[in-house]
Structures are given as C-alpha cells and as structure tokens.
Amino acid sequence: MTETFHDQKLPARRSLPLKAMAGCVTAAIGMSYAIGSYAAHAPRDVGIGASSCAATVEMLGDMHFDRIVTAWSSGFISGSNAGISGERARPRDIATVSEASILRHVRTFCAANPTETLGSAVATLFATLPDDH
C-alpha cells in the first residue's frame, strides 16, 4: 500500500447519452408545466381554511381545534388587512377582533352555511370590520 491518495487515478467521467439527456429535459419541462397548471387552478384557501363549515362546526369546542381556528383566522385577517400583491385597499380596524369573536362568528356563520368553508366564514368576518381611520 505505497499508493497515496494523490497517486490514484480518478475514474473516467461518463457523460449522459443524448437520449437520457433529452428525457431529463422533457421531464423537467413536464414538471414545470404541471406545477404552473396547478398554481393557476390552486384552491383559494389551503390548510384548515379549506375545511367545510359542517366539519368545522362539528369540531368547534375542542380546545386544540379552537386554537387552530383562531390562529389561522388571525393570520387570514392580518394578511387580508395588509393587502394582496401590493394592493392597498382601505385597511380595516382589526383591534376589536379577539379569539372569542372569531369563534362566535365562525360558529354562527358555519351553522347557517354548512356547505361553505372556514375561509369564507373568516372572509365574511373581515368584510364586516369597520375601516381603520
């Protein structure tokens, strides 16, 4: 074992055959099309916001679920107040929104509209908030 690391030959580099390279390029193009197509038709709400009102009403009252609902709703309301893509609509006064008011609104809205989503319930709550002066 007199050979050292520096004395060893590196293995010959193998390049991908043209067919394999063309297959990789085709797969990459196909994946980018699929991702772009999904993004164009992605659901408006994701995560718990896409849950049906019927399922939401059924789970309300569970302390862990209530925290998830209020956390998601608070983020939705804050994000909506910040505007989307630089749009500056009139900001709403969100100071009065509390966990209790969110849960009360979601319970009332979802009981009356079981086929709607949690996201639509919170969007309705946001729309009812007064303008921030």
Results as ranks from 00 to 15, higher is better:
I48R: 07
T124N: 13
T56K: 00
Y33Q: 13
G75C: 04
S73V: 01
A121H: 13
V122W: 00
M21S: 12
M63A: 14
F5I: 09
V69E: 00
N81F: 06
E58Y: 12
T70Y: 10
A42D: 01
S15R: 02
A20H: 08
L129F: 06
A40L: 14
A127W: 05
A127T: 08
I94P: 11
T117I: 15
P17I: 09
M59G: 06
T26R: 11
A28P: 01
S74I: 08
R88Q: 12
V69W: 03
V97S: 07
A123S: 13
S74P: 05
S85N: 13
L60G: 06
V122H: 00
G86P: 10
I35F: 10
C53G: 10
S85F: 08
K19P: 08
S74K: 06
L129Q: 05
E3N: 10
G47I: 15
M59Y: 07
T117H: 00
T117L: 13
W72Y: 04
M1P: 10
P43L: 00
S101V: 04
A95M: 08
I84C: 14
D7L: 03
I94K: 14
K9N: 14
H6G: 13
A27K: 00
N81H: 05
G75K: 04
G23P: 06
R107W: 10
T2D: 10
S85Q: 14
R104I: 04
L103H: 03
A50N: 02
G49T: 12
D132F: 12
S73G: 09
A22W: 02
L18T: 15
A89C: 12
I94Y: 00
A28C: 12
M21E: 11
T56Y: 03
D45R: 01
C53K: 07
C24W: 13
T108N: 09
V25M: 08
V69Q: 01
P17S: 10
T124Y: 04
E58K: 08
A100V: 03
H6Y: 14
A12S: 08
S51L: 04
K19S: 15
E99A: 13
R14Y: 03
H105D: 00
A82R: 11
A55Q: 11
G119R: 01
I35E: 15
A27G: 07
E3H: 12
K19V: 15
T70S: 02
